[in-house]
Write a protein that binds this DNA or RNA. Structure first.
Lengths: 212, 212
DNA sequence: ACCTGAACACCGTTCAAGT
DNA sequence: ACCTGAACACCGTTCAAGT
């Protein structure tokens, strides 16, 4: 008789990542959290990679659908924002997501929703596929740059993060990098929702002519 | 008297990553490659993270400038493509780059070049900063999705990669993911230069109205 | 079938010692 | 100052044994 469930293992592992960052995840730490010998986890997941895949699916399951209306712009914005929000809730998961291919049912479902949205709006299917991957690349890249500079401990507030970035930019020598220094305030705000929306809207605007 | 140089350590470590993927990098393996005791490397780099930062700078140093003409579109395309090419040459480096903030001189120099290009073309500086980060997010995200599914061994040809992806999509159940299946051929080609250019051009088109 | 203790082959990093 | 051997506190994973 099993003393645990797969969901319990996933929950414990995700808690480790959320509390201590990417590197806090280990089979041994998760086992300790669950009060079980390290090798007991191999009953539930054959390898560490399989556990990570389950964690990724768990995070993707938190991405809610967005509006189901006929406006593809709002639909893409909604799903992309929901994905970014889910990744921002679990910043330690980002390096794990980005390091391996995503082919689980949740990942496929997310893509399918975007494709359906675009095809229904009149995009030729192949263009829809290209748009999907382009948007995904942007969202994952943004999330990665966002998560990259977070400390491993508990998450700082957005104001603290912007302040930290501003200080970092002040160390940049203005004689060598004048434009970088001149735009430090804007660059410091790169981690905000507003900046995410800015790039996403540019992407959507550039995509629009493809919809005949 | 030092028996090695920092450059030798970086070269050996990069060779490990290129040959065996991200996980092939370890202080001990690099030391073995150089014929030296593991802890000898701590003379050259205080931590593994410092070595990784030097590796990132090395890869960014390989990004060539692109055209210096007055056309900002060509300039952004050139630098973004050069960055993608450098990352594609070192796919094992991508998870390392994406996992940590990039604030070295090469990283700053790359950003500065893009900012100068945009400001010279008439972008308001703050818009230029936003454009820079948006393009970076796209390039890094694309590179990450690209690198994610590469095997750890020697790199397959592009044709082999597309074929592998096509086979993977054939396993997707068409009754649950009809659009995904219908666009499998296009999706299989996502790793190609052409797809990278496609998304980049959409981004540039969406950005253009910001240049007054 | 599932858990355990013990082990194997790894890590990054530190420390005391030698030159 | 720089290298070495040895050690510490970790990893993922395997294996034989117990229930």
């Amino acid at each position: 008789m099993r003393v645990l469930t797969q969901d319990q293992v996933v929950a414990a592992a995700l808690a480790l990542v959320d509390a201590g960052g990417t590197d806090a995840l280990s089979m041994r730490a998760a086992a300790a959290e669950l009060g079980v010998a390290p090798n007991a986890l191999y009953t539930y997941f054959p390898t560490r990679a399989a556990l990570v895949a389950a964690l990724i699916e768990q995070v993707l399951a938190e991405v809610d659908g967005g509006p189901l209306g006929s406006d593809w712009r709002a639909g893409v914005r909604g799903i992309a924002s929901a994905l970014r929000a889910a990744l921002a809730r679990h910043p330690g998961m980002v390096p794990l997501m980005v390091a391996g291919p995503m082919f689980g049912p949740q990942a496929l479902g997310l893509g399918e929703r975007v494709l359906a949205l675009l095809v229904d709006a009149g995009f030729p299917p192949d263009d829809a596929a290209r748009v999907l991957y382009t948007v995904l690349a942007y969202v994952l890249g943004f999330a990665a740059m966002d998560a990259a500079e977070l400390p491993d401990g508990p998450a700082p507030t957005m104001a603290e993060r912007v302040a930290t970035r501003l200080v970092a930019f002040e160390d940049v020598p203005a004689e060598h990098f004048p434009h970088t220094r001149a735009t430090a305030t804007t660059a410091a705000g790169y981690v905000t929702d507003e900046q995410f929306r800015y790039g996403l809207d540019a992407l959507i605007a550039g995509i629009a002519p493809l919809c005949r």
